[in-house]
Design a protein around this nucleic acid. Structure first.
Length: 221
DNA sequence: GGCCAGGTGTAAA
DNA sequence: TTTACACATGGC
């Protein structure tokens, strides 16, 4: 399995090149972007981030001190702005309380702590850990499940944790590698593995031989 | 005009 | 425990 996962990564890298993720100027921007991008097109997130920067409000103190209605207006283009405003407020309080990035890295269980915040689920937490705090966790998203179940390496019903385990059990826990792999999956999905797949010129066509004779992960749990 | 987007929480079956 | 649904803007 390790070789197959590595080979898929290599094919994606050859096809798309280095992705330089996460696109942001600071770890805090990564973490806010992770909330804003929940089930949302990244283009819309960029508008919201630009609004925050324009208002000189892309920092935890400014957001915490801001009227919630004001925050809603700034992040409106990202959609779901009512709930995201609440989530961002909750996260900023947490972020300040624990001493920003350096404090968060020193928490005994940073992932579990993030998951306690209402509105931060496993993907958002893992994106924050990997891309803002440089903690080696594999970030799973809808694309990951879609692509790897179509390749026959993962059950369609695989849970988030089971999907993550497929990668983390077989690959070395390196931040730079997990970073690149997840970014390549997103890039690939945008071109070929949408809800309606476009398999023309798919760089993983060679990889599709994987669909035969393999244990399928995540059929339970 | 319809579909989709780098999810999550809640409530009913 | 599983499934269904709300949340909302904007690009294609």
């Amino acid at each position: 399995m390790r070789e197959k996962l590595q080979r898929i990564h290599d094919l994606l890298l050859a096809a798309y090149g280095p992705q330089h993720w996460w696109p942001a100027d600071s770890p805090f921007e990564v973490m806010i972007g992770a909330i804003l991008t929940q089930n949302t097109n990244w283009r819309n997130v960029e508008k919201a981030i630009a609004n925050l920067k324009c208002a000189d409000a892309l920092n935890a103190e400014a957001i915490s001190g801001m009227d919630e209605a004001n925050l809603r207006d700034l992040i409106r283009p990202s959609g779901f702005f009512n709930q995201k405003a609440v989530r961002i407020k909750l996260f900023c309080a947490f972020y300040i309380r624990h001493g920003k990035e350096n404090g968060l890295k020193k928490l005994p269980a940073p992932r579990a702590s993030l998951l306690e915040i209402k509105g931060i689920g496993p993907e958002t937490a893992d994106a924050m850990l990997l891309y803002a705090l440089a903690i080696p966790v594999f970030v799973v998203d809808a694309y990951t499940r879609r692509i790897f179940s179509r390749l026959g390496l993962l059950s369609e019903a695989a849970s988030y944790d089971a999907t993550q385990a497929l990668f983390m059990r077989h690959l070395p826990p390196e931040v730079s590698f997990f970073n690149a792999y997840h970014a390549l999956i997103v890039q690939h999905a945008k071109q070929h593995c949408r809800v309606k797949p476009d398999c023309a010129d798919c760089p993983l066509q060679q990889g599709c031989v994987f669909s035969e004779n393999h244990d399928i992960y995540g059929t339970s749990a």
